[in-house]
C-alpha cells in the first residue's frame, strides 16, 4: 500500500500497481463495440448463468426490446435498445411506411436500431472502491474492481458514489453487487462469460492496452467508411475517472445510451471537501465559544 492515502487519486499509474500489487498480470478489460451488437442478449444470459445472478423480473417496459432497464445488483450486463429515424452511414434500409412509401429514391426511410451492452466500467479511479468503508470493494491483480461479499455490510455508500449507476443493493440480501469481470474465470485463464458468449464479437475481452489500440483502428475504419457517428467512450486515460477498464464504441452521444457524458470520480474533489469540513469544524467551535464571551448570563 502507498503511504499517501490520496496517491491513488492522483496517480495515472496502473491501478493494480497503485493498489499495492507487485508482479501482477497486465490490466485487462472489455472493449464493447456497439456497431456490431445485434441485441441478442446472450451476454445478459451468460452473465446470469455463470455468476448465479438471481432473476429480477422480465417486464414489458415499452423501451424497444429492453426488458432489464439498467445495470443493478441483479443485472451486470444490460443491453440497451434505441430506435432512431436516422441511417447508419449510407445504409439502404428498405423501410416503408404503412402506406408502402419507401422514400424518394427507394432506399427506404431512415431508421436505425442501436444496441449496446453496458457493464461495470472497472474505472481506473473507482469511486465505489474509494468510498467503501469496510474494504469489501478491492482492486484485483488484473486491475479490475470486485466486491468481497463476505465482507460487505450493506452500508450502501458505493451506490450513489458510482458515476455510472452500476453497483446496487440486492433486495432481500442487503449487500452490494456488481460485475466482477468474472474474477473466477480470469483466475484460470478463461475469458469472462459475456465475452465468451457474444456471437458477433461486440464484446471483446483482452489486455487493456491492446484493446485500446484495436479500438483506435476500428474507429478509424468506421470513420473512413463514412460512419461519422462512431466515437469511443471511456477509452481516454485522461478522462474524469482516469479511463475505463471497460470502454465502448458508440454511434451516438453517451446519454442516449444512458451513460453520463463526462463522469468524474467524486473522490477527486475529496481533499477539498476535507479541507472545507475542517474549516467548518473550526468555525463551529469558534461560534460556540464566542457565544459565551458576553458577560451577561
Amino acid at each position: 500500500m502507498t503511504t499517501n492515502p490520496f496517491a491513488q487519486l492522483l496517480e495515472d499509474a496502473d491501478p493494480a500497481t497503485a493498489a499495492g500489487w507487485t508482479d501482477h498480470p497486465p490490466r485487462v478489460g472489455f472493449f464493447t463495440d456497439t456497431s456490431v451488437c445485434i441485441g441478442c442478449k446472450a451476454c445478459e444470459v451468460a452473465c446470469k448463468e455463470w455468476n448465479h445472478v438471481p432473476e429480477d423480473g422480465l417486464r414489458f417496459t415499452g423501451m424497444s426490446y429492453d426488458n432489464t432497464i439498467g445495470l443493478g445488483a441483479d443485472t451486470w450486463r444490460h443491453v440497451a435498445f434505441i430506435e432512431q429515424e436516422k441511417r447508419i452511414g449510407r445504409q439502404v434500409t428498405g423501410a416503408a411506411t404503412s402506406d408502402g412509401d419507401r422514400g424518394d429514391d427507394d432506399d427506404g426511410h431512415a431508421v436505425r436500431w442501436l444496441m449496446s451492452s453496458d457493464v461495470c466500467k472497472h474505472c481506473t479511479h473507482a469511486a465505489c472502491l474509494d468510498v467503501c468503508p469496510t474494504g469489501a470493494l478491492f482492486r484485483t491483480e488484473f486491475g479490475t474492481v470486485v466486491v468481497q461479499e463476505d465482507i460487505c455490510n450493506g452500508c450502501g455508500y458505493c451506490i450513489p458514489a458510482c458515476p455510472y449507476g452500476v453497483i446496487d443493493q440486492r433486495r432481500g440480501d442487503g449487500r452490494a453487487w456488481k460485475c466482477t469481470l468474472c474474477y473466477d474465470r480470469l483466475g484460470v485463464g478463461a475469458e469472462p462469460a459475456c465475452a465468451k458468449a457474444c456471437p458477433t464479437n461486440s464484446i471483446q475481452f483482452g489486455v487493456l492496452d491492446e484493446l485500446r489500440e484495436r479500438a483506435d483502428r476500428r474507429l478509424a475504419q468506421l470513420h473512413d467508411a463514412g460512419i461519422g457517428d462512431a466515437r469511443l467512450y471511456g477509452r481516454d486515460p485522461e478522462d474524469g475517472v482516469g479511463g475505463d477498464g471497460a470502454f465502448f464504441l458508440l454511434l451516438d452521444e453517451p446519454e442516449v445510451y444512458g451513460l453520463p457524458p463526462d463522469p468524474v470520480v467524486t473522490t477527486r474533489d475529496l481533499p477539498q471537501m476535507w479541507r472545507r469540513t475542517a474549516s467548518a469544524a473550526v468555525l463551529l467551535a469558534g461560534l460556540v465559544g464566542a457565544s459565551f464571551l458576553r458577560r451577561t448570563r
Binding site: D33, S35, G89, Q91, T200, R218, A225, I227
Partner: peptide, 11 residues
Amino acid sequence: DREATTGVNTG
C-alpha cells in the same frame, strides 16, 4: 466478423 461496417457501400 467484428470488422463489419454496417451501412457502408450499400447506397
